[in-house]
């Protein structure tokens, strides 16, 4: 299969969906810039023009409501937030209305199929208000779907699935992923929402990871294989709905679980998965579950503090070894250097 970069896969999924469904439009700050949300909306802008891809004033809440109102009239709007953090301004429309629309009108007012894309920033001094990752908050609310594609194939597939779904869907994209390459199907095929991906099968320890932490976990698993540790890696892909079955069957097989997410621990995705294992796979567990999350403070800017703030491949690998009662001293070598070039 040919390879595409993550941003190219997002773009291809969007363009193919827009070709097939004239009700789709894209808006949000900077969507029609030459830079096009890390390149992901450039081709859609070129192909479909300002009628269907257009910039938005800085009005996150009303624009989300506008997308809802357009969706109620049969459109399929995609709204893009260049950073997750700005989505807080849109929570009234997104959570108080979009998430509840179908339910609270008894199904009689139809659906509002709004797709919200939001980018998670990391490193290069993104700081406290440009680096947050809101999947735990959003997944709390019945009525929303929340997905985090990690691999290019799913960047395309989940874009297609979100644009086909009748439920409001949030796609969280980690900035660090845009340049990563991987095989991507040329066909127009959705990735099922609510289904995790077993990235690699293994027998000793299960790692359940989200978004960029899947990439870190792949590096960790590769290194651990050299140490004779067989890792089963599950890419969660969707937080709501949650694929309990894939997680539990893996945990029942390996008996050990490490969970890694791009956000914090308290009330977070990592805790949800840990609780799930404790409640439904307790008797299979051979060791305590380990949670890998951001350090419990706002994101700092200074390089020296960022290095301590973000968990990485070696953090995951050490946690895996800990569940096996082992230690290793050379794992620091596996961590990626932050090669992002600013300012954006």
């Amino acid at each position: 299969m040919r390879e595409l970069k993550y941003y190219e896969a997002l773009s291809e999924g969007l363009v193919q969906a827009m070709e097939r469904d004239s009700s789709i439009f894209v808006t949000g700050i900077a969507v029609d810039y030459a830079s096009g949300i890390f390149g992901s909306t450039v081709e859609a802008t070129r192909r479909f023009g300002p009628e269907r891809v257009f910039d938005s004033p800085a009005m996150e809440n009303a624009m989300t409501g506008i997308c809802i109102g357009a969706a109620a009239m049969g459109k399929r709007p995609m709204m893009v937030h260049p950073r997750n953090d700005f989505m807080f301004l849109a929570f009234d429309q997104l959570i108080n209305l979009a998430a509840k629309w179908r339910y609270m009108y008894g199904g009689n007012a139809g659906s509002v199929p709004v797709v919200v894309r939001a980018v998670v920033g990391k490193g290069w001094g993104q700081g406290a208000t440009h680096s947050q990752s809101l999947q735990s908050l959003l997944a709390h609310f019945p009525g929303l779907q929340v997905v985090l594609p990690a691999l290019p194939q799913d960047a395309k597939g989940l874009t297609i699935a979100a644009l086909q779904s009748n439920a409001p869907t949030v796609i969280l994209e980690h900035r660090t992923l845009y340049g990563i390459s991987g095989p991507v199907d040329e066909a127009y095929v959705p990735t099922p929402i609510g289904k995790a991906r077993v990235v690699q099968e293994g027998t000793d320890v299960t790692i359940v990871a989200t978004s960029f932490m899947v990439i870190e976990a792949m590096r960790a698993a590769e290194e651990l294989a050299k140490e004779g540790v067989s890792v089963e890696l599950v890419d969660l892909r969707s937080i709501r709905p949650l694929d309990e079955e894939t997680i539990l069957s893996s945990v029942r097989k390996t008996g050990r679980l490490v969970v890694a997410d791009t956000s914090w621990e308290l009330c977070g995705v990592v805790s949800e998965i840990a609780a799930l294992a404790a409640e439904k796979a307790f008797h299979s567990l051979k060791a305590p579950v380990r949670r890998i999350a951001l350090a419990d403070c706002p994101a700092p800017v200074s390089m020296s503090l960022e290095a301590a703030f973000y968990p990485k491949a070696s953090t995951i690998a050490r946690a895996v070894l800990a569940t096996l009662g082992r230690t290793h001293s050379h794992l620091g070598d596996i961590d990626l250097a932050d090669d992002f070039k600013g300012p954006y």
């Binding site: 409501g65 506008i66 997308c67 809802i68 109102g69 357009a70 969706a71 109620a72 049969g74």
Partner: peptide
């Protein structure tokens, strides 16, 4: 906002 969005449609 929602009515404004329907007007956009």
């Amino acid at each position: 906002a929602v009515a404004t969005g329907s007007a956009l449609a």
